[in-house]
Simulated assay, not measured.
Amino acid sequence: MNEPLPPRLLVVDDDSDLRELIAGFLRDHHIDVETAADAESMDAALARQRYDCVILDLMMPGEDGLSVLRRMRGRDRTPVIMLSAMGEDVDRIVGLEVGADDYLSKPCNPRELLARVRALLRRTTRGDEVTSLQGGSGNTPRRRFGDWSLDLVERTLFRQGYPAAPLTDAEFRVMTAFLDRPQRVLSRDTLIELAKGSDADVFDRAIDVTISRLRKKLGPGDPIRTIRNEGYMLSLKPEEG
């Protein structure tokens, strides 16, 4: 039996020492890694081949990471983990708004970065393998609500006639909070508390960003309602069993 190919990553950072440190650590853990020093060399790499994930520095000379990410999101959905030495909440929020799948402050622990990469690859690989409501193994627990189904193991949303939509950790926690409390108004503070996790920091404005991204993944007619000055509500009740 042929061994599965290792995931292929692209590390984009103008700091050559850090770039090679990250690349070397990931290679030691059986990941195929290429590197780029700036937006131009990143574009050339992306034109040559497809990557399973891009690790992208926010602050680079010339075109910065946010501008690069905006361009990327105009043409593909390659998973992106953004790195920033600034470490401010606003940078994290803007990165998520633009379309980053995850965000880490620099200097980051290489083991944490590896864990984030693996988690992101698991989510996106599973989502690619299943493209409809009937897809997947059929053995994993799901919560159904209206036209939608949430796979609780793969953390993926399904809807008949639409592509499968893998959720980030924050999106999954918010979605399950709604499903556990359907047709009830949940304030931002409540959602922040419910969505907290060991690997997901959720801030007040980031809740709005997370819900906005969740609505896009739910698609047209999404069942999340905004209750002015109060919070959000899931208008549908999940099926029993």
Rank of each mutant, 00 (worst) to 15 (best):
D222F: 00
V185L: 08
V185N: 10
T190Q: 13
D201W: 06
L191D: 03
L194I: 02
R215D: 06
A200W: 01
Y232S: 03
R213K: 15
V185E: 12
R184W: 00
P182W: 10
A206D: 13
P220S: 12
D189W: 02
N229K: 15
P182R: 09
R181D: 13
D208V: 01
P223A: 08
T176H: 03
E230G: 01
K217D: 00
A177H: 09
L179H: 09
L179D: 06
L218Y: 02
R215P: 03
R225H: 09
T210P: 06
L179Q: 07
G231I: 07
P220G: 04
D201V: 14
L214Y: 04
A200E: 12
P182L: 10
S198G: 08
L191I: 14
I192N: 05
I211P: 00
G231Q: 04
A206Q: 14
G197R: 10
D180M: 08
Y232D: 00
L186G: 01
D180R: 14
L194T: 02
I227R: 12
F178A: 05
P223V: 07
L218I: 01
N229E: 12
G197W: 10
R225A: 15
D189R: 14
D201S: 11
A195T: 04
R225V: 11
L214G: 02
L194G: 03
R188Y: 08
D180I: 05
D180A: 15
D180N: 15
D180V: 05
K196W: 08
D199S: 14
D199V: 11
F203R: 15
A195R: 02
T190F: 06
N229W: 07
V202D: 06
Q183Y: 07
T210A: 14
S198I: 05
L194A: 14
S187H: 11
S187N: 10
R181Y: 09
D199I: 06
K217G: 01
T176K: 09
M175D: 02
M175W: 03
L218V: 00
G219D: 00
L191C: 05
I224E: 02
A195F: 03
G221V: 12
V185M: 08
R181F: 06
T210G: 04
Q183L: 09
D199Y: 11
R184L: 13
L179M: 12
S187T: 15
T190D: 12
D208S: 08
G197E: 09
L191G: 04
P223C: 08
I207W: 02
